[in-house]
Design a protein around this nucleic acid. Structure first.
Lengths: 111, 111
DNA sequence: GTACTAAGGACGACTTAGTGT
DNA sequence: ACACTAAGTCGTCCTTAGTAC
């Protein structure tokens, strides 16, 4: 676990969080995302330490393996991160219901 | 409005969406995000047409001007995009309630 | 005013080849 | 096994200088 934090983006933080949750190594994650085994360790470490930013295609693969929405990696707000993480675990019907509730709450703001 | 779509990321789509919602030009958005007026049109156009990907700092500024969470730009799923857009409009108390509801729904899945 | 583009220099990602636990 | 890094290559972003409506 690195503590460099050159960038202001939350990718490294969320990535380490999600990896710890399912207990997967940097190299293993890279390989499961289709990165060649000879460079997987180096590349993923760059992302985990915040030195480099992965492209969208790789972010999608990581999100799929880690069972989070891609947007989770771009969420500095912890509250919203929890919403995104749980959203991904819900069945489609419950997701739609949640969206409905949120938009309902917005509508009721003017009352 | 461009139709190039070189990249698979949803940034251009979401950006155009959010800009149309509040009715702001490409150049005006760039200037309000601190980009020099002489390059604002060119740079923002690159993002709107999907040719280039903005860095996180600029994404944060755009999100602030457009009143959406940064994560909104990285959300291919339309359903989740609606959740994110509405979430941003809610007061803190309502946001927390929404997170609670979502996590509650996840817990009840095992029943 | 508006949207958009080619091209080159500037910058950051990816690979190689390692260290150290 | 594991996490991590310097340095070079190479691909992408940013700026310049425009076109077109």
């Amino acid at each position: 676990m690195a503590t460099h934090e050159k960038t202001q983006n939350p990718i490294a933080k969320r990535l380490n969080e999600a990896m710890a949750r399912i207990g997967i190594s940097q190299k293993a994650l890279g390989i499961r995302c289709g990165i060649d085994a000879s460079v997987a360790s180096s590349r993923v470490n760059h992302y985990c330490t915040g030195r480099h930013v992965p492209n969208f295609l790789l972010l999608e693969k990581m999100a799929s393996v880690l069972k989070v929405p891609v947007a989770f990696f771009y969420t500095p707000d912890n509250e919203l991160a929890r919403l995104l993480a749980s959203y991904q675990l819900l069945p489609v019907r419950a997701r739609k219901e949640l969206v409905r509730v949120s938009e309902q709450l917005v509508s009721s703001l003017s009352d």
